[in-house]
Every structure is written in structure tokens, then in C-alpha cells.
């Protein structure tokens, strides 16, 4: 208990860094996922080819390797060094964005063809169709997988200690080497990671529920906000690799 009291502020500092990385990475990943996901549905083969290259390259290489590349190889190539925090967010965003792009593409393609035909009958432009009809309807379908991806993103932030960022994992390592208490030092970090994940899961379910209500769907079980606390397991969407 004393140990916890003494060390907790350091852990909270680390957790704050972890949250910043998660948030920054999520924003970047979201933008990339939307842009490349939409590009994956257009008629132009060139745009689709660019999307495929982005998706395959960044799904094929772990965020850790990409981050190392930004931190160690880019300075050699350009003479400029990247801020580690910036390099980390870039690597995480590019990686998760590639998975997200596939999710967005699949969700957009799953919007019924009849809905698109109705937009033609109303003479909406491609941009209006996307903004008003297709993306809002695909949104509800993207969210569950986005929920899994943001958990994966949060977990992936733990690699940043290797480029000297003082995140939660880095704090756990430091506390261990300072106190020799391996079990306690890591247990605190594990619990904080677990709690962050639970908050993220809860938040994503809230978004999901709102999205479904917007489409006029109500959850089958009804139930209040507490029903969000006992969801099916995370991170296990079949067909979506982590």
C-alpha cells in the first residue's frame, strides 16, 4: 500500500502519456482510415491501387518497426530527426489506419445498392451521396470494429518506451529497477492498462448505441446505460486480425 502511494504519481504521469499517444494515434488513424477507405470504393483504378499499397504495406509491417524506421532511418536519410512522440504517433496512426481503411471500405460497400439508387433518383452528387447517405449509414457498422482497433492501438502504444518515451510501460520498468519489486511494479501498470481499456470499450459502446439509435434501431435487450457494462468480449471480431 505504501508502495502504491509512493509510486502512483509516476504511474499516472506514464498513463497520461499513454493516453496522449492513444488519442493522437486514433485521430490520425481515423483520418487515414476514412480517406483510404473511401478511396478504396471509387471507380478510378489508380486511387484504388494507391489504397491497396498503403493498406498492404502498413498492415504488413509492425508499428514498432515503422517507429524505429522513423526514429533511426529517417534522420540518416534526410538529416532531420523526428521528435520521438511525433514518430510514435505517426507509426501507430499509419498502422491502425491501414486496418481501419479496410473496415471503412467494407462498411461503405455494405450500404445497400438501393440506397445509392435513391440518391441518384434525387440527383445528389457523389460528394453529397457520401456525406448525407452512405457514410452515415456505414458508420454504425464501422464502430464495433473501430472499438476493437482502438484497444489494439492503446496496447500498441506500449512499444514507445523503446524510443525513450516515458509511458506507462516505461514507468513500470523504471520502478522495478528502482525498487526491485517486479510483481508490484508491473501489476500496477497492468491494472491501469486494463482500466483504460474498459473506459475505451464503454465509450465506444456508447457511440455504437447512439449510431444505432440514429438509424432507428434500438438494442434488442433495451436496458439502460448499465447494459453497456456487460458487453461481449472485445478484440475478437472474426475476420478482423488485430
Amino acid at each position: 500500500m505504501e508502495f502504491l502511494q509512493a509510486q502512483l504519481p509516476r504511474y499516472l504521469d506514464g498513463a497520461w502519456i499513454t493516453l496522449q499517444l492513444t488519442f493522437g494515434g486514433a485521430v490520425l488513424a481515423f483520418v487515414l482510415a476514412m480517406v483510404f477507405g473511401i478511396m478504396g470504393t471509387v471507380r478510378s483504378w489508380l486511387l484504388r491501387a494507391i489504397t491497396t499499397v498503403y493498406v498492404e504495406v502498413f498492415r504488413g509491417i509492425a508499428a514498432l518497426v515503422v517507429m524505429f524506421w522513423f526514429v533511426f532511418a529517417v534522420p540518416d536519410m534526410t538529416g532531420f530527426e523526428l521528435e520521438p512522440m511525433f514518430a510514435a504517433i505517426l507509426a501507430l496512426g499509419l498502422n491502425v489506419g491501414a486496418y481501419g481503411a479496410e473496415v471503412v471500405r467494407a462498411a461503405l460497400n455494405a450500404v445497400p445498392r438501393a440506397q445509392v439508387e435513391a440518391t441518384v433518383a434525387l440527383n445528389l452528387s457523389w460528394f453529397q451521396r457520401m456525406r448525407l447517405v452512405v457514410v452515415p449509414q456505414a458508420w454504425a457498422q464501422m464502430l464495433p470494429t473501430f472499438g476493437n482497433l482502438i484497444i489494439e492501438l492503446m496496447k500498441a502504444t506500449a512499444v514507445v518506451y523503446m524510443v525513450g518515451i516515458l509511458d506507462l510501460t516505461a514507468v513500470a520498468r523504471e520502478v522495478r529497477s528502482g525498487t526491485g519489486e517486479t510483481l508490484a511494479a508491473f501489476a500496477i501498470a497492468f491494472v491501469i492498462y486494463y482500466l483504460i481499456a474498459q473506459v475505451l470499450i464503454f465509450g465506444m459502446r456508447l457511440l455504437e448505441r447512439r449510431a444505432n439509435q440514429k438509424l432507428g434501431r434500438t438494442p434488442p435487450s433495451g436496458g439502460g446505460i448499465m447494459s453497456l457494462l456487460r458487453p461481449p468480449s472485445v478484440g475478437t471480431q472474426v475476420g478482423v486480425a488485430k
Binding site: 438501393a114 440506397q115 439508387e117 447517405v133 449509414q137 432507428g216
Partner: peptide, 13 residues
């Protein structure tokens, strides 16, 4: 030109 469809095709969102 306007069209009404067999399956209505209202926008659920």
C-alpha cells in the same frame, strides 16, 4: 426526373 421505388428506399439515417 423523380422515381419512387418498390422498396421505398427511404434513408434510415
Amino acid at each position: 426526373i423523380g422515381m419512387v421505388f418498390q422498396q421505398f428506399n427511404l434513408f434510415p439515417n
